[in-house]
Computed example of a mutant assay.
Amino acid sequence: MVDVRWLDDDEQRTWRSFLAAVHLLETGLDRQLRRDSGLPHAYYQALAMLSEAPERSLTMTRLAGLLRSSPSRLSHAVARMEADGLVRRRKREGDRRTTVVTLTDTGMERLERAAPGHVSEVRRVLFDVLDREQVDRLREISEAMLGALDPGGDEPRYQVR
């Protein structure tokens, strides 16, 4: 029998508050983006990663890693974004096994139109309710959690370059 370290009342309250906040944050950001730009949050994140990459291009493997997405889920999303003209796919020259995804001008324009509303919502629900010390602490906490959840992940965690 495994000896379980059960959560005490304070830990349980923290855990449940954290889960509720993460759920409502993701749901709210997705709802805002769909309403204002027609983009799901997952597509916005992919377009943003591509926009920051050299030549606005990344391999599917690299993009999946940055997004913490499965290759199959990303492949489906990229196919839909490609059908909408937001990205294009091509095989890497000299390596037919590697697929490169590139943000199109149309995709960049769509991202640029979506970004102000998205950033305003992120600011409203996160940064405007925290002081500078809390923001620094949240980043430290998030990075510590990412270290446990994704020990082989990219450092710094969300920078492409």
Rank of each mutant, 00 (worst) to 15 (best):
Q134W: 09
F127C: 05
G152D: 13
P151D: 11
G147W: 01
F127H: 12
P156T: 14
D136V: 11
R124C: 01
R137C: 10
L146P: 00
D150E: 14
G152C: 01
E155M: 03
L146G: 05
L149T: 13
A144M: 09
L146F: 08
D150V: 07
L138N: 04
E155D: 12
M145P: 11
G152F: 00
D131M: 05
D154W: 02
E133C: 02
V135Q: 05
A148T: 10
E133P: 00
D136P: 08
L146C: 03
E140Q: 10
L130A: 05
G147T: 03
F127E: 08
R157F: 08
E155V: 10
G152M: 01
Q134T: 03
E140N: 09
F127S: 11
R137A: 12
A144W: 07
G153Q: 01
R157C: 11
A144V: 06
D136Q: 11
D131C: 06
E143N: 10
E155H: 13
V129W: 00
R139M: 04
V129S: 00
I141Q: 06
R124I: 04
L149P: 09
R124N: 08
E140W: 13
P156F: 09
R137H: 15
R137T: 15
D154I: 02
L149Q: 11
L130K: 01
A148C: 08
D128Q: 04
D150T: 05
R157N: 13
E133S: 08
D128S: 02
R137W: 14
D128E: 14
M145I: 09
L149C: 13
V129I: 04
V125L: 10
D128G: 01
E143H: 02
D150R: 01
L146T: 00
V129H: 00
E133I: 05
L126I: 04
V129Q: 02
L149F: 15
D131H: 12
I141R: 01
D131G: 09
L138Y: 15
D131R: 02
R137Y: 11
R124A: 10
R157E: 15
L130D: 04
L126H: 03
E133G: 06
D154K: 04
D154G: 03
P156H: 11
L146M: 09
D150Q: 05
M145G: 12
V125T: 14
G153F: 01
